[in-house]
């Protein structure tokens, strides 16, 4: 494992020029992944359509990818990136992997190439679940990152199958009759594990050392490594500027997005979150700063603390139950 001090001095493949929202977790993730992958191997990314694509690859804006300010002389520093349709990221990346392998098998490429797919949770878990699960099932040697912001952010923050219980989205609006989304989110960690992934993780750059360790481990994985990155979305979740990393940290500690790592055939590792609800920060701490939960949680003007709105106790209790059930399931894999 490389030292973090060495990694931060590396050349990221994520460059200035993107039009991602200020405060977007995706740009933080890209910056980190960009540096971790500057490891002496050529890197190729395959992207489905998602915020991270349309905001970084839109002509005539600068292509916000590539290492260095000019063309690298060293081919291993060169960078390839392909965008294809929404659901396709794992499949196109698997195809790139296979092409590399078939060329390598005849000696036509001298050194290995790392192949990485990037999707949003809409692309990977809704329209692209087929693609993701079958790529895992075929044990394709790729690392697949899924940026989970719980909504179809590109199209205006509509419900996605990973949307948290109670969240207000533009297609599950909270009204007096409906408390936001009440469809339990897809158990994407369990699906990826059961499909046979070589490595499944959920990890946030809010925990930088762990993030680095997990991504480096994934890059060495012989099968498909799938890393879900919780991505607080400043525009869709509607929180104040500057709270992105704090919310990412709280999303784990409150159990919404537990840090998780499972290598195939080994016990899982759950980090930075207590199994015992009493030892975890209350869910209100995570929900309170976000307007998408404001119909459920409010700030007490006298105490300054977030609290459940009167009459919404049952819904929030359902959220707590969902989190506990999810954590228990993950701990059973530990």
């Amino acid at each position: 494992m490389a030292k973090i001090i060495d990694i931060i001095q590396r050349e990221s493949c994520f460059q200035p020029g993107s039009t991602l929202c200020a405060g977007c977790m995706e740009s933080i993730a890209f910056q980190n992944i960009g540096k971790i992958t500057d490891n002496g191997k050529k890197t190729i990314f395959g992207l489905g359509t998602f915020c991270g694509e349309v905001s970084t690859l839109q002509f005539p804006n600068p292509v916000a990818w590539g290492r260095g300010e000019s063309t690298p002389e060293d081919w291993t520093k060169s960078f390839g990136i392909l965008h294809h349709v929404f659901e396709s990221a794992p499949t196109i990346t698997e195809a790139i992997r296979d092409t590399v392998d078939v060329l390598s098998s005849v000696g036509a490429i001298k050194s290995d190439i790392q192949t990485i797919s990037m999707s949003g949770d809409g692309g990977a878990l809704a329209i692209g679940l087929r693609s993701l699960l079958h790529t895992i099932n075929r044990q394709a040697r790729i690392v697949s990152f899924v940026l989970v912001n719980e909504v179809f952010a590109n199209t205006g923050f509509q419900y996605s199958p990973s949307a948290s219980l109670g969240s207000d989205t533009s297609t599950t609006p909270a009204t007096e009759l409906h408390p936001g989304n009440m469809q339990p989110p897809l158990d994407y960690l369990g699906l990826a594990v059961n499909a046979g992934a070589g490595l499944v993780a959920q990890v946030s750059p809010a925990f930088p050392k762990y993030f680095l360790k997990v991504v480096e481990t994934a890059l060495e994985c012989k099968g498909t490594a799938v890393i879900f990155i919780p991505s607080p979305c400043i525009t869709g979740w509607k929180f104040a500027d500057g709270e992105t990393v704090e919310l990412a940290r709280l999303s784990c500690e409150t159990g919404f997005f537990p840090c998780f790592l499972k290598k195939k055939g080994q016990p899982a590792e759950i980090k930075f979150v207590e199994r015992d609800a009493a030892k975890r920060p209350p869910v209100e701490h995570f929900m309170g700063p976000q307007q998408r939960f404001q119909h459920l949680v409010r700030k007490n003007k006298e105490t300054g603390q977030f609290e459940v709105r009167p009459g919404k106790e049952a819904v929030v209790e359902e959220i707590r139950t969902w989190i506990q059930t999810k954590l228990d399931a993950l701990y059973r894999m530990a």
């Binding site: 690859l57 839109q58 292509v63 063309t71 690298p72 960078f79 390839g80 990136i81 965008h83 092409t99």
Partner: peptide, 15 residues
């Protein structure tokens, strides 16, 4: 260039 022998981006979106 292709992705393997290039420093390139393919499939960009446009306005």
């Amino acid at each position: 260039p292709g992705l393997i022998n290039g420093d390139t981006a393919l499939g960009n979106c446009v306005t």
